[in-house]
Simulated assay, not measured.
Amino acid sequence: MSGQEMPERELDGEGAAEGETDTAKQVAELEDLWRRTAAELDNFRKRCARDIVRAREQERASVASRWLPVLDNLERALEHAVSDSDQIVEGVRAVHQQAVAVLTDLGYPRRDDETGKPFNPAHHEAVGTIADADLVPGTIAHVVRPGYGPDSEVLRPATVIVATRSE
């Protein structure tokens, strides 16, 4: 090169150490940020878990409190068990209606599955078959146990006996 040469810049130990210090600071800051974020996420997860437990407990208490009047009325019916049997039967019917109303209020109404309706495996559980000339094969011949819940969310399917062809 000519007489004016550019002096070569040599990195002395001080410049390299300063670059390493800046990098180390950035790494430490990022690591601190990462740890804080991880801790916040863990706290959020724990808070959500506590909220779920609390919501379940509140819902259980709500459902149980809805059943308390039914239990009270059953106890009253049992207190009068030695009196007139007609009144007891009437009282038990009233408690039964009250219990069905509680399930309906909870979103699980009693299903009206009647004899002659088509069997639907999504809403019915067949426990037997019977040959009956009066009924169309594949229809309900007898409801053994009623089902509860709307079409979209069956709580319990109805237990039924299904009609088959008579031989």
Rank of each mutant, 00 (worst) to 15 (best):
S2A: 15
Q4G: 13
E5V: 14
E5G: 11
E10V: 15
E10A: 05
D12F: 05
G13H: 08
A16K: 04
A16S: 07
A17M: 12
E18P: 07
E20M: 15
T21G: 06
D22I: 13
D22F: 10
A24Q: 10
K25S: 08
Q26S: 14
E29H: 13
E29P: 02
E31P: 00
E31N: 14
E31M: 12
D32C: 09
R35T: 05
R36V: 01
R36Q: 10
T37K: 13
A38Q: 11
A39V: 01
D42V: 11
N43P: 00
N43F: 11
F44H: 12
K46D: 12
R47F: 07
C48I: 10
R50P: 07
I52Y: 10
V53W: 09
V53T: 12
V53G: 07
V53N: 10
R54S: 09
R54N: 04
A55G: 02
R56F: 01
R56K: 12
E59F: 03
E59T: 06
R60W: 08
R60E: 15
A61C: 06
S62G: 05
S62F: 08
V63M: 08
V63S: 07
R66S: 09
W67K: 08
L68D: 11
L68K: 15
V70C: 03
V70P: 01
N73G: 12
N73C: 15
E75K: 09
E75L: 15
S83D: 03
S85T: 06
Q87K: 00
V89Y: 00
E90N: 01
G91I: 01
G91C: 02
G91E: 10
V92G: 00
V95K: 00
H96T: 10
Q97L: 09
Q97P: 03
Q98P: 03
V100A: 05
A101M: 06
A101D: 07
V102K: 04
T104Y: 08
D105C: 09
G107K: 05
G107C: 10
R110W: 01
E114R: 14
E114H: 07
T115P: 07
K117N: 13
P118A: 13
P118E: 08
P118Y: 05
N120F: 05
N120M: 08
N120E: 14
A126Y: 00
T129N: 02
I130Y: 00
A131G: 05
A133C: 03
A133W: 09
V136L: 11
V136G: 06
A141G: 03
H142L: 11
V143R: 01
V143T: 13
V144M: 03
R145S: 10
Y148F: 15
P150R: 14
D151A: 15
V154P: 02
R156A: 14
A158S: 11
T159H: 11
T159E: 11
V160Y: 00
T164Y: 02
T164A: 04
